[in-house]
Design a protein around this nucleic acid. Sequence first.
RNA 1: GCCCCGGUAGCUCAGCUGGACAGAGCAACGGACUUCUAAUCCGUAGGUCCCAGGUUCGAAUCCUGGCCGGGGCGCCA
Length: 575
Amino acid sequence: MRDFATFEERLSDWTAQAMESVFGLEGSDVALGVTPTNNEKFGDYQCNAAMELARTLKKAPRQIAQEFVDAAELPDFVERIEIAGPGFINFFIANPALADYLDALEKDPLLGAEAVGQGKTVVIDYSSPNVAKPMHIGHIRSTVIGNAIDRIYRFLGYRVVADNHLGDWGTQFGLMIVGYRNFVDEQALAVAPVEELERIYVASYNRSKEDPTWREQAKAELVKLQRGDPENRALWERFIELSIREFNTIYDRLGVHFDLYRGESFYNDRLPGIIAALEEKGLSKESDGALIVELEDEGMPICIVRKSDGGYNYATTDLATVASRIEEYSPDRIIYVTDERQQLHFRQFFAISGKLGLEANLVHVWFGLMRLPEATFSTREGNVIKLAALLDEAEARALELVKSGSPGMPEAQQKDLARAIGIGAIKYTDLSQNPQSLVTFTWEKALNMEGNSAPYLQYAYARISSVYDKFHAQFPGTDLAECSLRIEQDIERRLAIKLSRFPSAVHAAAENYRPNILADYLYDLAQIYSSFYQNVPFLKAEEGVRESRIRLCRATAARLRQGLELLGIETRERI
RNA sequence: GCCCCGGUAGCUCAGCUGGACAGAGCAACGGACUUCUAAUCCGUAGGUCCCAGGUUCGAAUCCUGGCCGGGGCGCCA
């Protein structure tokens, strides 16, 4: 058993072994471990195996449970065991053991989590906006969810390569180049580059719809670009540079950092090789002038890997990208974070990737589309809400809140705080939801700062910091490490049990690629803490109890801070 | 036509790898700031878990079939 194994791990291990020996089971497919109870009156963990074993053992569940309880020798961290209902076996963790466990974790930077990623590399592909288009609220989910997964995996010891797979290649650049030459407003380009690039694109796109020669021109410019024409190439590079620079201002505000900015174009040289490999293995065939891969055996429609005009498309680029990543990083897995519309594409290209013999564990983490209450939004409809505007609004609203709540605070600090709170609120809104649910955007929800929200968690954290400082001011020289943790009252126990479950929240979030599991945990923790804070005295408690409670505060703060950091949400000592 | 998601309290959503009476937030109502930060806490009220079958000792959770909503399905990514 690893260091700092959780009670759930230790108990599951124990019940499984004890069940096997008491009933002479071997290789049973019945789950013999424990799960957390959902009601504290049933103890802390429960084992449900007795009911499931009733059939194979040909005994009543309660009898099985009773025999088990009679025969087994309890581990020392269990205070008592009870049989309830149809045959649930309930375990109550001993308070001293709980205190010892939390004690031991004070020295553990992982707070009890296991560094399961030690020695493993994972590539995470997320955000990936298109060059020359502003980031809008539809981009926030990939960015924020991807970044949380990124942070969680790093925390668990993985070497993470965060790659921003920019859309920097494709037919739109023909339109962009013609559009630029005809419509550019250099002054506007200097002020708001991406906005101007988008304006150029939309104008050019609209013109192309009614003007066939315009279309021809765009196509010709695209071909020139693809052949390496220096002038077009320079323009294209400028579009990319301007775009990345502007994306970075958003990423900075969001606290998102990438290790790589490799656009699709980075893999251009590999595309013919991918096609050659497909042909060599007999995986592809001609159809209407295009080269396709049939996936009928996999129950999927065909996939085009080379267009009839000879151009490659995204499936081919994605295959080349996998090949490149394997060569360079030998990743344990590659995680893609995109919206749900790309599910089929990923299933197809994962399948082809396997056929090509590209050895990699490919994972598509998809999330539901973001919509507006009245409609879907699109660049062309012009009803997009720009990401920058959303962040501005969040910070502005947070600033109002800060000013009214902390009028005496220096302005610079107010602004810094408003940034942490406003951005946190936006991130938390996305992260606290099951990624796969469809999201209807409303300002009210996105900027929620009460109840189940980031500011609630940040507020709880700040209150703890404040209490902690006051404690040291009033009782200077106290060495908390010398003071024992006493878990006596119900609320203390509830808090302690919750504190001990931090590792499973992190692991579950990582394994399921669902940051909302961690967000839920943090919210529960903060709720229990807030109740504790409101109903129990700390500084005015008697000596001994006082120090113990301050230590519980400290342990809570450590998990809130770490957990929020894993979600990419900042904390402040004062709010 | 086929495939993937969702449908849980008035609203927004957790819970879904089966477990004990279905949970939060917001909104509503009633309380708590001379006290460790009231962005908080305590309490009340609120639900045919879309419908119908099935599997199971046990189903919001799994299976089948409907209904409603979103998305995808050959040269966009």
